[in-house]
Amino acid sequence: MSRVSRSDQTVIRVEGLEHTYDGKAFALKGVGFEVKKGEVFGLLGKNGAGKSTLIKILTTLIRPTEGTVTILGMEPSKDGPKIRKRIGVVQQDESFDFTTVQGNFDIYGVLWNVPKEERVRRREELLKRFGLEDIRKKRAFDLSGGQKRRVQVAREMMHDVDILFLDEPTVGLDVIMRRQLLDFVREDVKKGLTVVFTTHNLEEADYLCDRVAVIDSGRILVMDTVDNLKNMYKGKKTIELTVESSGAERFYERLATTLGTQANLKRESESAAVLSDNPKETLAAILGVAKETGAQIEWLSVRKDTLEDVFIDSVSRENVG
């Protein structure tokens, strides 16, 4: 179920998008999706999956090699400045002027043509809302990682935007700070803001997004609402295990053969995650292979379907394919 009431108006349309930095390796390949007004659209992928490249194209910072992009009914190649007037962007890297927190807000307000009285009102409201009042006189570069991130997100709200792009805004934040930041964004989403949000954190995508696109090696592997994606995996369970290193190679080779197509095995060194429709049978197979190969299972757990399973499943299927 969508967390907010969305309109049917499409604010972002991407078709056949491809991008290469060196003319050879594709950073993005055949990417296409639509985002409706008031929607929180998540781009979920590991580091280097192509999320930031996609954000750079959507925010008009770079031009795609192929494909069409429409933002708020306008094409970035023709109407870049007009589009940029209506979007806000919190980039992955920190970006501050060499001045105080308050100074950063004020300068941003001027750059975005916010009238003086309104500028002061918004600044004070945002400083309060984001808990930045006590550090308003501190220089932005002297702040902690969490404070900097809050300033970056809050600063973007100094001006009116139709679409807010958040490129991994929670990197480096602790759990509490991360949740606070997401809550700040959710408050504005309730007022109708459209958000495009990139992350490699599955819990965040689950918490914030209406729809999620799993992206890997520049391609969208799966895309749906968070609830639909989870429903696709209803009844499935993930068995996570770690095997003692000396017998791991033989164990996993044998396990892969034994499971066949019955379950989806994703291995990383001595650990693995097995997504299965029939966890009882899979568990029995795992224990059987362990006994047969003499491998020692150091750790084993069974958990219910989460968005993480969607991610692991789609990425590992892609890698196998």
Partner: peptide, 18 residues
């Protein structure tokens, strides 16, 4: 140099500036 190094060039160029 500072704007490139400290991210403000990219930030300004996703704002209403050419």
């Amino acid at each position: 140099w500072a704007d490139r190094r400290y991210g403000m060039l990219a930030q300004l160029l996703v704002g209403p500036f050419t």
